[in-house]
Design a protein around this nucleic acid. Structure first.
Lengths: 332, 332
DNA sequence: GTGAAAGCGCTAACAA
DNA sequence: TTGTTAGCGCTTTCAC
């Protein structure tokens, strides 16, 4: 027996000797079958190529190891069917699951019916699930506000419609632009990746009215956009300011370095794992709670003050004073 | 019973009904205990933040899914103890393991003793293990050759001593430089990451003799190096050409875009998984074989022709002719 | 403090 | 084609 029973030192030694001699190793499958516990946690992420998600993993892994759990990872590759298969397969081999998914709130039920504790991302208080997230609306407001203050007036959003946060980000941006009486030009990328940003770039930049500034759904799209805009002959950031969300590590190493909003991905991972372990160990307090992390604006080189022509400047000043005293609606 | 036995349609229907009514789901743990098969493959990688490894995962995952296997991932975080614990824990839950590790050849035995089929990376023919790798020596040669042809004479290598490929890369670089009678200045980064490159930069760049060109152990180090060199006031690539290994996706989005050697990481992952499944299904042919992938030079903007002063030019010409007809030693 | 026995949920082999 | 049984490697319980 392993750990449950105590013996006299003599017997214990003899036991240990036998174990070593036979090369015995306990079969965790059989053990798990009995105890119903695996000491493993499953984590499903949408895309392992996206540093945002690998940061989640880093955070979750740290906490798991601290508590002597093994973190098992699957990459669902933004594919809903694959996601369901993989999650079902994984869920039965672990004590609990952390899941990053685009499935709508009402499709989440089967996940809960798996009978394992679950932590999700960004499900808000509207759903009785443990969940951790950030204020995407506020983040959008921050970025828009930053750009407007730099003198930008024609702002575009290159979004990703399939994301559950896309609308929130738009809302935040609009909240800000509305204060200045500015319109928002909305575009959509086919995928939340650099390739998506590249492909969407020309439609924005070569379209009828080129924006002064582009806010992208995430940093990867922003990176792709920047590269493609360059190849189309634009001078960045002079011609167009670009910003993203997530603060992925590589945004720091590009030129121009990327302005973005830090969502504290790693801390999100930590928090999710902590929440799950709490649930596992019966601390029901945090069970179905929602933890919100603060977004932080990270200003780098990809957003710069717009050099305005004379006519433009007057219009800008006009707009700014017109609705000068409006409050920040996103800080609710 | 599930799949093993056939029944008449009537019984089958009644069975299905009962299954649905009871909400029965087979317990894969119990099943695996009996059959000894889990239909899962374990993959251990050194650092999930490194796109090289996430590409391995992408490749392996694709093949696994094709064959209806679940790929379970662990991140060992460049930590040997953690690695051993995680691998042992994972190995017993899966049918086979793919392991990316820095452990020396003679420490690999315990891994094989786990009793599961294993595929490793870059173990060569010298070890009776299934393994896939690339020719690091040739890759080093390619990069060095590229730089010499661009007129660089003072070439430095910013390596990572703990890697099992570091010496191979140095050998390849030296093979080339020797042909031109050039010396190689060797430095070492503390970690194979952008942070490692940043920290190591000043010692190289502010040292007694600044190199014309720096070859970094991998792209991440190169990215960090470039960023830091910029902050130290250097004009890149004019002042220093920089190159790396791996061809990580983000090297394309930096400025200057990174010259590198493509190791076909994704294909490596595919190949490793294919090899493992072959082993699992009894195709013993590939069992202990070693597959080598070809490195490919990817020239981008971070390496440029050196603008030589008059004296330098003469010396360079001299060196080039001196051992003009020597063969490529790395193509063995 | 130690050994024996029951049974977890399943599959495999066999009997009906 | 169907129902039954043994037993996988472990933990748990209980008698010794």
């Amino acid at each position: 027996m392993n750990g449950t029973q105590r013996f006299t030192a003599a017997v214990e030694a003899r036991l240990k000797e036998a174990i070593a001699r036979l090369g015995y190793r306990s079969n965790p499958l059989a053990r798990s079958m009995i105890t119903g516990r695996t000491r493993a946690i499953g984590l499903a992420i949408l895309d392992i190529s996206n540093p945002h998600f690998t940061n989640l993993v880093k955070g979750a892994n740290r906490v798991a190891i601290q508590h002597d759990y093994t973190l098992l990872l699957v990459d669902t590759e933004e594919n809903p069917q694959r996601e369901q298969t993989l999650i079902e397969s994984l869920a039965q081999r672990v004590d609990g699951m952390i899941v990053s998914s685009r499935m709508p709130d009402d499709s989440v039920q089967w996940l809960l019916d798996l009978g394992k504790p679950v932590v999700l991302f960004g499900r808000g208080a509207r759903f009785p699930v443990a969940s951790v997230g950030t204020d995407s609306c506020l983040a959008g407001y921050m970025l828009a506000n930053h750009l407007v203050k730099l003198g930008h007036r024609h702002i575009a959003y290159l979004g990703f419609g399939r994301s559950r946060w896309n609308d929130e980000r738009i809302r935040g941006i609009r909240n800000c632009l509305d204060e200045y009486g500015l319109a928002l030009d909305i575009h959509d990328a086919a995928s939340p990746s650099a390739a998506g940003g590249e492909r969407a770039c020309s439609a924005l930049v070569l379209g009828p009215k080129r924006p002064d500034a582009v806010i992208c759904y995430n940093d990867l799209i922003a990176l792709g956009f920047i590269k493609q805009a360059r190849e189309l002959g634009l001078q960045l950031p002079r011609d167009v300011s670009v910003a993203g969300f997530d603060n992925v590590p590589y945004g720091e190493y590009t030129a121009p370095a990327l302005t973005t909003v830090d969502f504290q991905s790693e801390k999100m991972g930590e928090l999710a794992m902590t929440k799950l372990l709490d649930q596992l160990h019966g601390n029901a307090e945090t069970a179905a709670s929602y933890s919100l992390l603060d977004p932080r604006l990270v200003v780098r080189e990809s957003t710069v003050r717009r050099e305005v022509a004379a006519g433009d400047a007057a219009a800008a000043g006009d707009a700014r004073t017109r609705r000068h005293e409006s409050r920040m609606p996103a800080a609710e």
